[in-house]
Amino acid sequence: MDIQKLRDEAKRALGRKEIEYLIGYKKGSYGFRISPCFIETKEEVDQLTFSPLCSLSLVNYLTIEGKPLLPADEKKSKAKKVALLVRGCDSRALNQIIAEGGISPDQLYVIGIPCSGVIDLKKIEARFPHTPDPVDVVEENGNYIITINDQSHTVPVDELKAETCKTCQYPTPLTCKKLIGDKRAGNPPQYEDIQILEAQPPEEKWQFWQNQFSRCIRCYACRNSCPLCYCDGCILEKLKPQWVKRSVDTNENFMFHITRAFHLAGRCISCGECERVCPVDIPLMKLNRKMEKDVKELFDFEAGLDPEVKPLLNTFAIEDPEDFIL
């Protein structure tokens, strides 16, 4: 992608008087890290960047603290907007949140970036473990060209790309004001790993998830980095009744993860960030993708394709299948 085009577009956006600030990515403080940034003036636009290292979703910043976009002088800035960079999955997240009434599209100016997939930071940092200086990464002909201290390394894309991105169906933002660069075709959906899990006998599944959830420390990094986990008053914080105990053990962790999976059914857009940030490597995408697959097969529904379409769980059709209800 041409960074200059992105910066030019950002400048144009910031030139519009209704736009308060732009949420984008800039170089991070060390190694492979990228930082989110909030840009208010044209002069700051040159910090903007975009690369396969941009793994986190900026959509989070629209809903954080359960606040609408413009906490400062809210009343005065009614007509104000926020400009936001989105990749394919982010655009679906936005569509979904808009469909749910979580954000008003009138508050947004969306700049879309057709995405070729992000790098899994855990993989690249394991590959180049002692890398404090900022790094450049570009994708070229099926390889990542990684420049560390003027020395370049070529690594096949497949070895570092985030697993979810390898099967991304919608890399091109679906709904946006401006698109930077050419549209990209998506991949056909693929659920082989989920089918393997599905085929296991219940005891094995139970054992598998017990092992996984037993090590969750409930730091909630998965929840907080999820663009769709934006409830003001998450069930996990409820005290009366306290649905999930604060004790961190396998049972309560199950309760947390199963609840979260249900609350994301028909909503999760498979960006994969929850799994990538987990400090104890719990394979959350197996759960999320199972829900995604079920929702697709049972209800012929995919989350976040259209902001006008009602969310799956808010609708009822007489022909909805119900044979899974016990």
Binding site: S35, P36, F38, N60, R218, C219, Y220, A221, R223
Partner: peptide
């Protein structure tokens, strides 16, 4: 402004000791 408010920093920290 960019903090997403999770607890990964404090739970992984060897010197953080707050409890409920």
């Amino acid at each position: 402004s960019k903090c997403i408010g999770c607890g990964i920093c404090t739970y992984s920290c060897p010197t953080c000791y707050c409890f409920d």
